[in-house]
Write a protein that binds this DNA or RNA. Structure first.
Lengths: 242, 242
DNA sequence: GAGTGGTCTAGACCACAGA
DNA sequence: CTGTGGTCTAGACCACTCA
């Protein structure tokens, strides 16, 4: 690692450089999810910085939930397909009590030319192609939402022909080396459109929650656009503000 | 500060004890919002711990957005009435561009016996009283939501008779020493009720977003229940998932 | 220049997991 | 018992602010 010295501009802390170096390895899938990282001391020696500096970078990566640290055992690449982690990006909860695991039924999955909206949300060029998926999700056995998902075909070759698991994001990570870091959602209340009424088993015109989500990867590239239409009669969308 | 030694159970890091000590002073309004805290060195000497330990506690309080640290100047109690901080708990944004500041028009403010719902949300006893406020908020001059706000009357004596500012939470902090730490929101899509249709200037039955918020203070006590009914035709609720 | 927070280091010891 | 991360300390130097 290089010290920046007293440059007039562009000062960059050492631990930040370490953070970026490790983030790059995570983005390049040098270390796979679930895998253990070298210990603090080993990383410090390799990068030529003190253990405390490595620790600060590791703590920051842990705060961004990219790593998991376990005292006495080691530092691991975070896995986001655990039962509790399904709910990191799934914010619908039954009104009454705790939620069971959501299930999915895929309606269609095809590759096609990107629409204008898709190109806009995913920052794609003209003539770009996407893999477009439609599915219905259920909570506690009752259908709760229908969603259309679009991803750039170049980033996910062959996805349309695959068996799609319940948690898409772990598939993105394990099969395509793409980690979803954050997602930006825009929520609106709309009247349930006729074409989706049948899939959800509710009359058209019912007030429903429309969730427009763009998910970005570790390098802040938009990699998925998802438009969900959610029933909220016995369910709500939970949000915590800090 | 006391070292815990090697107790079999109940180990509590020193910096956590420092965190709690400082949090208590903030909760007791020993230091007012905007006020500067003693420097790291002074606090370390006072509490009998190292500067690094104090720093870790201060960093944690900063991460919880209770403090603001400015290099070269000092550490300050966070103020949440700045222009950008209005939006910490206000998640509605115009679809097109950047948001102007929201404005408020108070419809009513009275003290009354708490309803069952209010007692439930605010963890109040029977016969408890609340201050209940109703107001309409506008964004860029157009009405966007109507909301009913209830707070325990014992915590906010005289609130019903006050001039209510646009940002209630800064009033809570400065006049009543109550700091809102987090808020839990439950979102649903519903049909606009007739009694609120007039206030918002839209026909009854229009799909609207209902936001049910319970805000808690530094000690995790529920101190405000707010039920907002929001138009989302040209506006959306923005949420970031990490 | 004095004082503040920010970074970086080196080393000690503690808590925890697993062989 | 060994190795891991977690805590705590002390001190050096850097970057920033303001008088």
């Amino acid at each position: 690692m290089e010290r920046t010295g007293s440059n007039a501009v562009g000062f960059r802390p050492l631990y930040r450089q370490v953070y970026d170096t490790l983030l790059r390895r995570l983005a390049d899938a040098v270390w796979q999810p679930g895998q253990i990282l070298p210990s603090e001391g080993v990383l410090a020696a390799e990068l030529g910085v003190s253990q405390g500096t490595v620790r600060k970078a590791l703590d920051a990566l842990t705060a961004d939930s990219l790593l998991v640290r376990r005292q006495g055992r080691g530092t691991f690449v975070a896995e986001h397909d655990d039962k509790q982690s399904v709910f990191r990006f799934f914010k619908l909860r039954p009104d009454g009590a705790v939620a069971g695991t959501p299930t999915s039924r895929v309606v269609s999955a095809t590759e096609a030319a990107a629409t204008l909206d898709e190109r806009d949300r995913l920052a794609l060029l003209r003539n770009a192609r996407v893999v477009r998926m439609e599915r219905v999700r259920a909570l506690d056995g009752r259908p709760c939402l229908v969603e259309t998902i679009a991803v750039p075909a170049t980033l996910f070759p062959g996805l349309a022909a695959m068996e799609l698991p319940n948690t898409l994001y772990s598939l993105y990570a394990t099969r395509f080396g793409i980690t979803i870091a954050t997602a930006h959602e825009r929520l609106k209340a709309i009247a349930l459109p006729a074409d989706k009424a049948e899939l959800l088993g509710r009359p058209a015109g019912t007030p429903v929650l429309e969730v427009d989500r763009v998910a970005v990867d570790l390098e802040d590239r938009p990699v998925e656009w998802r438009l969900s239409t959610c029933l909220t009669e016995d369910i709500h969308y939970a949000s915590v503000l800090r």
